[in-house]
Amino acid sequence: MQMMIEDKPPLRLRLAAMGFDSVTLLALPAVLFVLALFVYPFIYGLILSVEPKDGAVWYTNYQAFFSDPFLYGTIGKTLRLAAPVTALCVVISIPIALRVRWMRHQRLLTTILVLPITLGTVLIAEGLLNYMGPQGWLNRTLITIGLISGPLQLVHNYWGAFLGLFISIFPFTFLLTLSYVTGIEPALEQAASTLGARPWARFRHILLPLLAQGLAVNFCLSFVQAFSVFPTAVLLGAPAGSTRVISIAAYTAAYEAYDYSLASTIAMIMAAVQLVVVAIILSSRGLLYRGPMGGAKG
């Protein structure tokens, strides 16, 4: 009997005490799924990228990418499109969200803004080709009211892709900003107002520091979408010129040249650039404010 008491409890109980029991196992299918279809392909892509087609040295593909301006130039072109669009979306979304949070019929506005997210980038591209084309309603209106004399070239160039991307991403950014803004305790602003702070001072010293963390996350999530711009750049932009973005290069390598190794290399470089941008944004958010988000609530 003495022996029995000194024995450790059965493994099942010890695991249960740590939090592993039959309930925890319910997460197993989902975890295995993510491991099999996300982590494994990612690692597979990484390995594939260092195994060039003709059995050359491991870094051949990376060397090829960074020595060919047609390939490495796509990073700059993608950033030149994605960064300004994302920044513009975040900046414009702040004053609008600050105003809209006091609005009574918010639901109607948010429903209209959800439309572009639901329709997706392909439909927006097709719609804008009609709407902003040389014979489209936008140019006709601008000519009729006398702002311009001839139609503006708004599609099949950088600005076409820029506007298309803006329309696809702004609703997402705005709704995210709105959810952060409504999470701020209104009493903080009222207190500042009572103490004599003007609107700009209230924004600069109360709202902005509280929002900084949310805006950084918002920028990252919006940037993920802007950076992987593909249909917009092909259909609305100049896919052979100013909007030859990195996803076009990856697609061409995989489905036109059938060089999956190079395609995986481009995908990995894309992920790396994305991670660098996210790291820069998330590390700089601490410059403004460190502390709990959402203020006095919770």
Binding site: Y44, G45, Y251, A263, A271
Partner: peptide, 15 residues
């Protein structure tokens, strides 16, 4: 949800 779908989409499609 944090990386562009293309980055894992291409290796996944190959696989």
């Amino acid at each position: 949800l944090l990386v562009p779908p293309i980055t894992f989409g291409i290796p996944l499609a190959t696989l």
